[in-house]
Design a binder for these strands. Structure first.
Length: 272
DNA sequence: GCAGTCAAGGGGCACC
DNA sequence: GGTGCCCCTTGACTGC
């Protein structure tokens, strides 16, 4: 294998001369993606990185042959007797810029980057794979944070609704308690003043308990329409009713006794 | 010593 | 079957 490999054809002669001086090449750069490779990479090789010892010992492929070789042909040879080393700062920076332009590595761009950075193409491919994995991890973390915030917001809203619901339930129970006490008092009053009432009237009172507070403020006459309809027929009975408990059975008998007021045939027109 | 990071190995899978 | 990608793991390295 020689320095005149396929990858070297992607770069201008000046660029390649600066990048890989031992491998002179006069091929012209013809790749449409050549813009993905920074042009100031001549200092990448053999220069100590700016951030200390972490990447000082490794610059990828050490020879032009390794840089231009295929993955299968150069991997074992390049790493023979050499431990793994980190990429230097400029190599990572260049790869990051290329990654920002596209996280999928086309074969052409892989070769360009490999030649430009003095790495084997497989190293570039592996770096992109690992970079995609790191990007995915960060993306998952971001998604998790978004979902977490949404969950917290919904949870807070749910708790507020539950507290409001509990408050409303307490109010309902309080109102029902007041209704029960009012009903007891009402029953005591009615029982004391309407001793002749039948059990049916008690049922009517029970029905009252099911009405609202506003409805209970109305007089019992509205709840006993039958008696109400009868009263105009007999002023006496009406008088008695005002004195006696309203809707009492005696009032009913009194009204029935006056048939002229109760029966609907023409005679009852006399009342008008 | 240990945890974290990163380059690289290797298996599995899809696509051609 | 070859290739590339994803995923998980390994091993080297670093900072504390």
């Amino acid at each position: 294998m020689s320095c005149n490999g396929m990858a070297s054809s992607f770069f201008p002669s000046g660029f390649m001369f600066q990048l890989q001086a031992p491998c002179e090449d006069d091929h012209q750069l013809a790749s449409p993606v050549s813009s993905l490779i920074p042009t100031n990479l001549h200092h990448l090789r053999g220069v100590a990185p700016a951030t200390g010892k972490r990447s000082a010992s490794f610059s990828g492929a050490e020879t032009c042959e390794e840089a231009n070789g295929d993955d299968e042909l150069s991997d074992d040879a390049s790493l023979a007797g050499e431990k793994k080393r980190r990429l230097n700062v400029e190599q990572v920076r260049t790869l990051e810029k290329s990654f920002e332009l596209g996280n999928k590595l086309e074969p052409e761009r892989k070769m360009q980057l490999a030649v430009a950075l003095g790495l084997r193409p497989r190293q570039v491919a592996i770096w992109f794979q690992n970079r995609r994995a790191r990007w995915k991890t960060k993306q998952l973390e971001k998604d998790y944070d978004v979902l977490r915030r949404q969950f917290d917001a919904i949870k807070a809203e749910n708790e507020a609704l539950q507290a409001h619901n509990k408050k409303l339930q307490t109010e309902v129970l309080a109102l029902r308690g007041r209704e029960a006490s009012d009903l007891i008092n009402l029953n005591k009053e009615t029982e004391g003043s309407c001793s002749n009432r039948s059990e049916n009237s008690s049922e009517i009172n029970l029905d009252i308990s099911r009405t609202s507070v506003a409805e209970r403020s109305c007089p019992p006459l509205q709840i006993l329409p039958y008696f109400q309809s009868v009263r105009p027929a007999d002023p006496d009975c009406s008088k008695v009713e005002n004195d006696a408990p309203e809707g009492s059975f005696s009032n009913l008998l009194c009204s029935i006794g006056d048939q002229s007021a109760f029966w609907p045939w023409p005679d009852h027109h006399n009342f008008h």
